[in-house]
Computed example of a mutant assay.
Amino acid sequence: MIDVYSWPTPNGHKIHIMLEECGLAYRAIPVDIGAGDQFKPEFLAISPNNKIPAIVDADGPDGKPISLFESGAILLYLAGKAGQFLGNTVREKYETLQWLMFQMGGVGPMLGQAHHFRIYAPTKIDYAVDRYSNEAKRLYGVLDKQLSKTAYLAGDHYTIADIATFPWTRSFANQGIDWADFPHAKRWFDEISQRPAVERGVKVLADLRKPLNDANAKDILFGQQQYAKK
Rank of each mutant, 00 (worst) to 15 (best):
P183D: 05
L208P: 10
V204R: 12
R209C: 13
A185L: 07
R195M: 02
H184P: 01
K210W: 04
A185C: 07
R209L: 11
L208I: 07
R209V: 11
V202I: 14
R195D: 02
R195C: 02
A206G: 00
H184E: 09
S193K: 05
L205Y: 02
L205Q: 07
R209W: 00
D181I: 03
A206W: 05
L205S: 05
H184V: 03
R200H: 09
K210I: 07
L205R: 08
V202Q: 06
Q194N: 06
A185Y: 04
R187L: 01
V202E: 08
E191V: 12
R209P: 03
P183G: 06
D190I: 01
E191K: 15
E191T: 13
H184W: 03
K203M: 08
R187M: 00
R195H: 03
W188H: 12
L208H: 10
I192Q: 11
A206F: 01
D207Y: 09
W188I: 04
P196L: 06
K186I: 00
P183L: 01
V198L: 14
A185G: 08
V202L: 04
P183M: 14
Q194P: 01
A185D: 10
P196S: 15
D181N: 11
V202A: 04
F189C: 07
R200E: 02
R200Y: 04
E199V: 13
E199H: 01
I192E: 14
K210Y: 03
D190G: 03
D190N: 09
H184R: 09
R195S: 01
Q194Y: 00
W188N: 08
K186S: 05
R200C: 02
R200N: 07
K186P: 04
P183I: 10
K210P: 03
S193C: 00
I192W: 14
I192Y: 12
V202T: 03
A197P: 15
V202G: 05
D181T: 09
E199G: 08
I192D: 12
A197V: 14
G201L: 04
A197G: 14
S193Q: 02
F182V: 03
A206N: 01
L205I: 06
V204I: 15
F182P: 11
V198D: 10
A197T: 13
R209Q: 13
G201P: 11
K203R: 14
F189W: 13
A206M: 04
P183W: 12
A185Q: 06
F182Y: 15
P196N: 10
E199D: 03
